[in-house]
Amino acid sequence: MKTPQAYKALRWFASLSMMVLVLFATTGCTKNMIVLDPKGPIAEQQRDLMLISTILCAVVIVPVLILTAVIVWRYRDKKGRKAKYKPNWEHSTKLEIIWWGIPIIIIIALGVITVKGTYALEPSKPLKSDVKPITIQVTSLDWKWLFQYPEQGIASVNYVQFPENVPIRFEITADSPMNSFWIPQLGGQMYAMSGMAMTLHLQADEKGEYMGSGANFTGREFAKMYFTANATSQEAFDQWVSEVKTSSPALTLDGYKELAKPAASDVRMFSAFPKGLFEMTVTKYASSHNHGLSWKDINKIQLEE
């Protein structure tokens, strides 16, 4: 294996495997690349941003890669080479202006697009729609997702259903270490943090079952925190709600405490949940922050009692 032939073979193998890989990446697997296969307005705009920024970058990157190959080939040291050799040529203001300038222009273009996109896609901003949005409250637990429907009065675990073409207002918190709530085909993720209710507005434009996951590591069974996000017609959604209401048990406060214990979970449905459970979960952690009462006030209150 130490012969030059073997060495050459190795180089061939290297290039070949690269090509196979590129082929792999561009053909067979695209249907699986769910991030590039959006089913909602947010994910669609994010996909577009990815493509635009890739193209903008490629404007510089591709010529650089070609230039690298050409320079390395042309100026390699060999006998009878025709290319110039100028060992002391080390400065050219004109050239340097060009390659400070080009990246600056590209970055300005990209920067403008990014800033616009950042404001347009700010996740707490409601979506433009004539339809009244539906609110779903999401809690990250160790290691499962609890979904509460304050308007419908039901709850579910590791499964969330909503009607298509209706904006969804997700309110996200955690009763666990920080997680991140992500449904790639509908849009980007949002951290789930204790003591806070984050808002994320998404919408599904098509019926379908989409993968959802917890994206930020939270411990042992973190890898079991997948859920199905099911976008259905309004009728199917209503039907599902009433089915859950009639056939599933209610989630009690004790039941919640049991549910919150660290373990993975199957899909579960609840016909009801304790009133204000989500708000309680949020304020449980937020309550330790200053409430504007001074210590002496509190002492006084306690004394008076």
């Binding site: 941003l49 896609l121 849009g187």
Partner: peptide
């Protein structure tokens, strides 16, 4: 670094 895309 394209912040809105980074959400994905």
């Amino acid at each position: 670094s394209v912040a809105p895309a980074d959400f994905q």
